[in-house]
Amino acid sequence: EVPFKVVAQFPYKSDYEDDLNFEKDQEIIVTSVEDAEWYFGEYQDSNGDVIEGIFPKSFVAVQG
């Protein structure tokens, strides 16, 4: 069931425009499960802007 919160276990950096880049310990709200390997989610950056994109499930852990 979406949405749910995950926390980055590792930093994720990608050159693909659709990917969500983040640092370790970033909290991310997952709004869609793309497939067995990928989530789609969002978070607010330090400027208060909402950043969204896809990212690999293996880089995050589900909270709770």
Results as ranks from 00 to 15, higher is better:
E1I: 13
E1R: 13
E1G: 14
E1W: 13
V2L: 11
V2G: 05
P3L: 07
P3M: 05
P3H: 05
F4I: 03
F4Q: 00
F4L: 03
K5G: 04
K5V: 12
K5P: 04
V6R: 00
V7Q: 04
V7E: 02
V7G: 02
V7N: 04
A8M: 03
Q9A: 08
Q9L: 15
F10D: 03
P11S: 13
P11T: 13
P11H: 07
P11R: 10
Y12I: 00
Y12L: 02
K13H: 14
K13P: 00
S14C: 07
D15S: 12
Y16F: 12
Y16K: 15
Y16A: 14
E17G: 10
E17D: 11
E17M: 11
E17S: 11
D18G: 15
D18E: 13
D18N: 14
D18V: 11
D18L: 14
D19R: 15
D19G: 15
L20K: 01
N21K: 09
N21Y: 11
E23N: 08
K24L: 07
K24C: 08
K24H: 04
K24P: 04
K24W: 04
D25A: 06
Q26W: 04
Q26I: 05
E27M: 10
E27L: 12
E27V: 15
I28H: 01
I29H: 04
I29L: 14
I29T: 14
V30W: 02
T31E: 02
T31F: 05
S32A: 14
S32I: 06
S32W: 10
S32G: 12
V33S: 06
V33F: 07
V33K: 06
E34I: 15
E34T: 13
E34S: 11
E34M: 15
D35Y: 08
A36V: 08
W38K: 07
W38T: 10
W38R: 10
W38L: 07
Y39E: 00
F40T: 05
F40W: 11
F40Y: 13
F40E: 01
F40R: 15
G41D: 01
G41V: 04
Y43R: 03
Y43P: 00
Y43W: 05
Q44R: 13
Q44K: 13
Q44I: 14
D45R: 08
S46I: 12
S46A: 13
N47R: 09
N47D: 07
N47Q: 08
G48C: 07
D49S: 11
D49L: 13
D49W: 10
V50R: 13
I51E: 04
I51G: 01
E52L: 08
G53M: 03
I54T: 14
F55V: 00
P56F: 05
P56V: 04
P56H: 06
P56S: 03
P56Q: 03
P56W: 06
K57W: 06
S58L: 07
S58P: 03
F59S: 07
F59V: 11
V60D: 03
V60M: 02
V60Q: 02
V62W: 11
Q63K: 12
G64Y: 11
